[in-house]
Write a protein that binds this DNA or RNA. Structure first.
Length: 894
DNA sequence: GGCCCGCATGGTT
DNA sequence: GAACCATGCGGGC
């Protein structure tokens, strides 16, 4: 970006200063300060002129006799207002006259009536306001409180200045940013001034002022880059962006238009557009440019209204290219900016952006196309300048019902108002349809840091029909400073598109942001990527979906995929999800099995307690894990159990009440001395055992193992339970014999039946007063099932009873009293019993209840038989006792 | 019991 | 190893 590259316009190798024209070495040894030419290039100056320019006395040196000198209204200092060199050293005052930039800055900072707020601020009052001493923005009263206007005295500032004001309000005043600035960063007006020292060599005419005043008079606020650009070029009364664009386009080069129109490689400062290199097309970017740190986080673009887009010069020469070139349609993180431009930006833009930018994860870099931007601001002010800020792919929790969108910290701190209180601020955000949403921007303290969230996003998320994996984008429209929220659906991205996107690799729109390494080549071959955007399918997908910045293209899909964390951030920290869906299922199943392995603690004498009339053995110690056995009944009805030797794997028949340790061998077979040695033959063949023990045949749920491998299955269950036990205590005990005082549903020390009840139903039992979840569930479930069954049984009877009731209406009351009495006897609370509730609610007649007293229902018994399985009894015989308490408890436990 | 709020936890970068 | 951030979880309503 030197004059040598535009020799047609600028005489190469001589100082650009017409007053000097000193020959320049070729090539220039170092980069020198100079102002920006209309072509976007920087005037090359000799050492002396460059030094003078840099020191700010260029005009005094070379233009002292020229017209345009004025005095600062505040300090009286002479200010040259007649040339581009000094264009950024003064500020036009509303009441006329000028202020030198130093005084302007003072007033900017000091003016008490110009306490700036975030353009997005809703609350114009309040403590948060203190955090915005920045000074150039203030709210404009009116219905659209989200719109902000530049302070009147600054209205004549350049767009870059105005943009600076905005960024100042967000960044400059942040302590951290100040801190970053401290080492020499000049993130101040002067910083921007510096940049605008490079505007153009063409002398400024009065048009600039006129333009500014006209815009002021017309109520137009802020001067965008385009108008400024036109004005700076003295192209006449560039009153609007369109005008300026046209003027620029009429007289300027394609590169100029590109710099204004399509070059996204500009900073958040509108003025950065002016800095765009004429060849700043990403295609031409050297790879080094990509690797270089950018100088700005924000990406500014002059929004071109639809009518403006009709301007032939707006898109004219560029239009086809623009449409054909996705890169020209997209906004790129500054890292793709021409390194020279970056250098320029660095000169003027401070290190804040550099640092912020470098700290921002690529996944948050905005990937908004200007197509989207146009949609964002569709119908908006054509003067608007859209600055894509950042984007974020919605996580499951973001898109969930909680309504909290977690904001990347860096992004929140860079682009949203500073908040000092966790309560934060209401933040007004406009979606692309123009609908305003108000979110609460706040934070939570988190590990000596902050976690920023937007609360209340659910309605917006739902309105946009977003879900996890979709991407929301945040942009800012200047000069209003409105926050714009767009979105991009991930669902539309097809694999084909993805592959195309991969092939095209069009810069930041496609690569997985986590992969910076790919960005270099990603900036090549973007034509293909643009075609991708314009495919009919994509157009369909890119329908604005009635408002959103909807880019259902492969780019976004890839982006979404790319942003996905390892293991995916969709559906949550997927590991947890996997545990829930897979491991926990496995755990649950093995737990069911493991319950059958529980044994009463050794050398522990139980105490007998009554639970609703039933005796339970209470052990002071938690149960231990025993060996799994299988209960069978022979033809004579005799019950016994089968256990497998740990050593020889032979099956031994044992008494039904035998309780085996976790490791049981033939030598422990005290019940059958003939088979107390592994050498002894097995009583039954494996085939016979397979028939005898159903679980060996695969009939039960998890009996997919053969007899020979059954111990493995048992071991699995043991291990599972042992692991659970290990979580709690018993480090010195072998896993299989550790007390199981911890398991998923219970607390340490729990003595509920699940923890202590052996599979046989014998041994430890829970307290009558036990209030563990399982016991309560058992009771509740029992009652519910009983009542359900009772209800069904009595429905027919109830009908008959009603008929009888009609005939004998006076008999109902005594019956009801009797029911209550029975309920009390049964140990159920009358008042709280679901029995009563259901009875009453379901309208079961008293007659029916009375009849139930005579039925074989367990409720009629004085005490509940917890061993009853009403579900099975419904299907079989009410008197069936086949169900076990353990089964019921297991059902309840699961 | 459900929802919301605020914080804690822990996986990921 | 620190920071970030997605999500879990407990308490309050």
């Amino acid at each position: 970006m030197s004059s040598s590259s535009s020799a047609a316009v600028v005489t190469a190798k001589i100082c650009f200063n017409s007053e000097c024209k000193e020959p320049l070495p070729d090539p220039l040894p170092t980069r020198r300060k100079g102002w920006r030419l209309r072509s976007g290039e920087i005037a090359d100056l000799c050492d002396r002129c460059s030094c003078s320019f840099e020191q700010g006395n260029f005009c005094e040196t070379f233009h002292s006799d020229d017209a345009g000198w004025r005095n600062c209204k505040t300090c009286g200092k002479r200010v040259h207002c007649g040339c581009v060199v000094s264009v950024s050293t003064y500020v036009l005052l509303d009441a006329g006259g000028v202020d030198c930039v130093a005084c302007a800055r003072k007033s900017l900072v000091m003016a008490p009536n110009q306490v700036a707020s975030s353009p997005m601020f809703m609350s114009q009052q309040g403590p948060e306001r203190r955090e915005f001493p920045a000074k150039s923005w203030k709210p404009v009263s009116g219905p659209f409180f989200g719109q902000w206007r530049q302070a009147p005295h600054m209205w004549n500032m350049t767009s870059a200045q105005s943009d600076l004001q905005q960024r100042l309000s967000y960044e400059f005043d942040r302590p951290n940013c100040i801190e970053k600035l401290a080492p020499g960063g000049r993130y101040s007006i002067l910083a921007h001034e510096k940049k605008f020292e490079n505007i153009s060599e063409k002398p400024i005419t009065g048009n600039l002022n006129n333009v500014a005043r006209e815009r002021y008079a017309n109520g137009k606020v802020g001067i965008d880059a385009a108008s400024t650009f036109g004005a700076y070029h003295g192209e006449g009364n560039a009153d609007t962006v369109q005008d300026s664009c046209r003027l620029v386009g009429d007289s300027d080069s394609v590169s100029t238009r590109k710099s204004v129109n399509a070059d996204p490689c500009s900073t958040s400062s509108s003025g950065a557009n002016l800095d765009a290199h004429p060849n700043s097309c990403v295609n031409s970017l050297p790879s080094s440019a990509i690797k270089e740190d950018s100088s700005s986080l924000g990406l500014a673009a002059v929004f071109q209204s639809t009518n403006c887009s009709k301007e032939p010069t707006r898109f004219s020469a560029n239009q086809s290219q623009s449409q054909a070139d996705p890169l020209s349609k997209q906004f790129y993180p500054p890292s793709v900016i021409d390194p020279e431009v970056q250098s320029q930006m660095r000169n003027g833009k401070t290190r804040v952006d550099n640092r912020t930018r470098s700290q921002l994860l690529p996944r948050y870099w905005p990937r908004i196309t200007d197509q989207e931007l146009q949609q964002i601001s569709g119908g908006g002010d054509s003067n608007s300048v859209i600055t894509p800020l950042f984007e974020k792919m919605l996580s499951a929790s973001d898109a969930g019902r909680i309504g909290r969108l977690v904001l990347p910290k860096k992004c929140a701190e860079a682009y949203f108002p500073i908040i000092s209180q966790p309560e934060g601020l209401p933040l007004k955000v406009q979606d692309a349809s123009g609908k305003d949403w108000v979110f609460q921007f706040r934070y939570w303290p988190n590990n000596n840091s902050r976690m920023y969230v937007l609360e209340g996003v659910t309605p917006c998320i739902q309105a946009m029909q977003l879900q996890a994996g979709d991407t929301v984008t945040f942009s800012r429209i200047d000069p209003e400073g409105k926050l714009i929220m767009g979105f991009r659906k991930a669902s539309c991205g097809s694999s084909e598109q993805d592959s195309q996107a991969v092939k095209s690799g069009n810069g930041f729109s496609t690569p997985p942001e986590s992969d910076n390494k790919g960005t270099t080549k990603d900036f090549k071959g973007n034509t293909e990527s643009r075609n991708l955007i314009n495919t009919p399918e994509q157009r369909n997908c890119s329908n604005f979906a009635n408002e959103g910045v909807l880019q259902k293209d492969g780019l976004s899909a890839r982006s979404s995929q790319g942003t996905r964390r390892k293991g995916g951030n969709l559906g949550s920290k997927s590991k947890r999800l996997r545990i829930e869906n897979e491991d926990s299922m496995e755990l649950k199943l093995t737990w069911e099995e493991a319950q059958q392995l529980l044994r009463p603690p050794p050398n522990c004498v139980p105490s007998v307690v009554l639970v609703e009339g039933h005796e339970f053995e209470e052990y002071e110690e938690a149960p231990v894990l025993g060996k799994r056995t299988y209960f069978t009944t022979n033809q004579s009805g005799e019950n016994y159990q089968w256990a497998q030797c740990e050593d020889c794997s032979k099956w031994r028949r044992l008494p039904v009440d035998a309780l085996l340790p976790s490791r049981w061998t033939c030598s422990n077979n005290t019940w059958d001395t003939e088979r107390s040695l592994c050498s002894a033959a097995q009583e039954l063949s494996l085939e016979q055992l397979a028939e005898l023990i159903p679980c060996k045949t695969g009939a039960p749920k998890r009996s997919k193992v053969k007899v020979e491998t059954d111990n493995i299955e048992v071991s699995d269950g043991l291990d599972t339970l042992a692991n659970l036990a290990i979580l709690g205590e018993g480090e010195n005990l072998p896993p299989s014999s550790q007390p199981t005082t911890k398991h998923p549903r219970h607390r340490p020390g729990c003595t509920c039946i699940v923890c202590i009840q052996p599979p046989s139903g014998k041994g430890p039992k829970h307290k009558q007063s036990c209030t563990c979840n399982v016991c309560l569930t058992v009771k509740r479930r029992f009652r519910t099932l009983m009542l359900r069954r009772e209800k069904r049984q009595s429905e027919k009877e109830a009908e008959t009873a009603r008929k009888q009731q009609k005939q004998q209406p006076n008999q109902s009351s005594p019956v009801k009293a009797q029911v209550c009495s029975d309920s009390l006897k049964s140990g159920l609370s009358v008042n709280n019993s679901p029995h009563k509730a259901m009875t009453n609610e379901e309208g079961i007649s008293d007659e029916g209840v009375e009849r139930r007293r005579a039925s074989p229902s367990p409720l009629k018994a004085p005490q509940i038989d917890l061993n009853i399985q009403p579900e099975r009894e419904e299907e079989t015989s009410p008197k069936s006792e086949s169900g076990s308490m353990m089964r019921l408890l297991q059902d309840a436990a699961t």
